[in-house]
Design a protein around this nucleic acid. Structure first.
Lengths: 267, 267
DNA sequence: GGCAACGTCG
DNA sequence: CGACGTTGCC
């Protein structure tokens, strides 16, 4: 099956891009982030017309995640609380950033990791706390079944090769999305639990990005970042067939600043 | 020469519609209303690239008029004040609604008449006061030369045949743009000075409109109003060759709610 | 109620 | 640059 992740930066503004893309790329599951819409206003009908079932967790203006699935989804778990219990979650489910399901025996998680704004800011602390809880969330999921696939907009470029800037640029460590603490959080909460970055199983070189800033004509100059990821648990590693980035939607008129990343699994 | 009038409802939002239309309809003069932009932000370069000289009188967000001319414009008169003197004008030039020039010996006036909001409102009174001053303005122009062509968005449908509603509908008299006082103002300040409605020289029947409300799918149902006009002075009457409405721009994506009206003069 | 302005945020 | 909320016009 093919699973795609795409931060659409408003599903209502991007509906035609999404439907066009799904017609060209009929993936089994599309994981959306930044839908920016309450559940009652989600453009369900248009996506159902394409044969997709929608599971949504949205809010007004900000954040919001959704799953578009060709198969009806038997279970949908919204927020960290659905797995960890609401007591442990505190305020970290207030923003709609987590939705999960099980498809073909694989636990699938769709995430919109907080951006963090600037190093040292309150939002940065929130991001690191959120990633802490993500670690516990994934640990719990791994205990319920070994095959776990986690995708989404992580707002973190783990290595310098994931950023257009020249390697070793000092600014990288001071930049949101590439600071040491953010990368350590990925190390601790994903890699140390055995997850691997599916894209890097197939493509070691630099120059592959999933996000380009709207400002400064970043896309035209290919000044991008690879911050949208698929992480897969050890039990799924052998099942990974391909992981690719489709740049074409980023080149359209009025695009999202992100573009889809597709994982193919032998499941 | 051909003179067109078009309320574009923001020249910046409608720039592509205007340039496309001018390529298809290379009129000698295009009179725009509701440009909604200050003069420094008017998209002059794109229109000059098409061979048009721009004379603009705009303001932020609201109103704004402009002349796009194939010929360089030797004189441009902005506001009532340019003709009447600022003393007589009071507050009626504060909004940018009047721009005038002379082309091929014809005095041409481009107007954006106040809408008036609702009968009896403060804006309604302003509209009627504005039309009073328009009468004096046109009287003065006629004294300087007999050939005067006045076009623009008048926000008045002079007769019931200019409205999609069934003739005699009582609501017409209570509706802004078709109230008795507005029609009387046209009578007094235009017709009584000898101006005639160029469109009605050629087309007596109903069912011809220049504006369709964005709401209630008015265009789809052809529930329109003819409120964009060309009025010509007696000396020009014999020079009028044709006056037509081009509905096509109203049918495009993201259109203005108005569509161009074209006057052809043997001048 | 549709559209486009502005200001704010990333 | 392009989301969104808000405001104002029609």
């Amino acid at each position: 099956m093919k699973i795609a992740t795409w931060n659409v930066n408003s599903i209502r503004s991007r509906l035609e891009h999404v439907t066009d893309w799904l017609r060209e790329n009929p993936v089994e599951l599309l994981c959306l982030q930044e839908t920016k819409v309450t559940d009652d206003l989600f453009p369900r009908a248009e996506l159902e017309a394409l044969g997709y079932h929608c599971a949504v967790s949205g809010q007004k203006s900000y954040n919001g995640v959704a799953l578009l699935s060709q198969q009806p989804l038997e279970r949908v778990d919204i927020g960290f609380g659905a797995i960890l219990g609401s007591e442990t979650v505190g305020d970290l489910d207030a923003q709609k950033r987590v939705i999960s399901t099980v498809l073909n025996g694989v636990r699938i998680v769709n995430l919109y990791v907080p951006n963090g704004s600037a190093i040292g800011s309150e939002k940065y602390d929130y991001k690191l706390r959120w990633l802490d809880l993500l670690g516990r969330y994934l640990k719990t999921l791994l205990e319920t079944g070994p095959e776990v696939s986690v995708c989404g907009d992580f707002n973190i470029a783990f290595e310098d090769r994931d950023i257009y800037k020249p390697d070793g640029d000092k600014a990288i460590a001071k930049h949101i999305m590439s600071s040491p603490a953010e990368r350590e959080a990925l190390q601790t909460h994903l890699f140390d639990q055995g997850f691997i970055d599916a894209f890097r199983q197939f493509t070691p070189d630099k120059g592959h990005y999933s996000w380009w800033d709207y400002r400064t004509a970043a896309f035209r100059g290919d000044r991008g970042w690879r911050i949208d990821h698929h992480y897969i648990s050890p039990a799924l590693q052998a099942a990974a067939i391909a992981c690719t980035i489709d740049k074409t939607p980023r080149g359209r008129e009025k695009p999202s600043d992100h573009t889809p990343v597709i994982l193919e699994l032998d499941r």
